[in-house]
Nucleic acid binder design. Sequence first.
DNA 1: ACAAATGATACTATTATGGTATCATTTACA
DNA 2: TGTAAATGATACCATAATAGTATCATTTGT
Lengths: 148, 148
Amino acid sequence: MKLITRNTDYALRAICFVVNQEGRVVTAGELVKKLRIPRPFLRKILQSLNREGILVSTKGSGGGFYLAKPAKEIDLLELIGIFQGHLTLNECLFKKLACPNVKTCKLKKRIDKIETMVLRELAKINVASLLSEERLNVKKKDHQDRSG
Amino acid sequence: MKLITRNTDYALRAICFVVNQEGRVVTAGELVKKLRIPRPFLRKILQSLNREGILVSTKGSGGGFYLAKPAKEIDLLELIGIFQGHLTLNECLFKKLACPNVKTCKLKKRIDKIETMVLRELAKINVASLLSEERLNVKKKDHQDRSG
DNA sequence: ACAAATGATACTATTATGGTATCATTTACA
DNA sequence: TGTAAATGATACCATAATAGTATCATTTGT
């Protein structure tokens, strides 16, 4: 069982790359090269990210993608929502019938608690926080390397 | 996304029923009637539970199933392990290649934490604890306490 | 006009899930 | 000792989700 599927994962990588370009427009072609994601699949993912208001796209020659909102405001829970639908660990298997077993509804409550925890944690994981540490490292290196 | 699939759920219901029979041998046919689970599917599930040492089966006329170990020692994590394989929320999507994106490995660490939490909570949910509340009610009703 | 980009969308392949179906084996007991 | 009642093993099938492909339409800078 995977919590994160491929399209969510690819989306996250793509977003991270775009963030690092600091506002520059990035094309799908570039992302394909850098991230080694199959082109048509990535294109579909980028289109979703555009529809969902995470990336802005510009069409035509010289077009591409850039961030639609601050990296801090893009979290894993939202991405999972887009590519995997609402995350419900809990989904009762006897929706329509009356649940034939009272015991399992006790189960439902306990799984609900776990679900709540997971959602809360996923919401905490935002793109900015994933990048922050590395950015610090980069700046340190920069500082040593280029003195001009 | 579901944390618990049907066979795990059915297995749990079946086990709960068997537990309530207090050591009596229960047949697949009985379980089919009471739990309204498709017969061949339930049979397969029961066979798994037998193989995995959760139920003991006796063959032949008058045969059936009973618990192989105390209800307290059967937990959801084990059942999920049997029917859904080891639960890994985390599964890195770039196992063989070097991970092209260091950022995502920070992600891995954060998801690992969530996974650890989830596994710990699932291990806490055992059959005895799911039934305990109801058992208390039963005891109040028939007023004869033969616990020891 | 044309090349370079994205948008929309329909199709396909693979895998996991949720089952069925069948035959073999064991056992109680009439 | 034969048969019905039970489980064991296993191969098969249907549906849905995931992971992709393919194609054509649209926009835009030069």
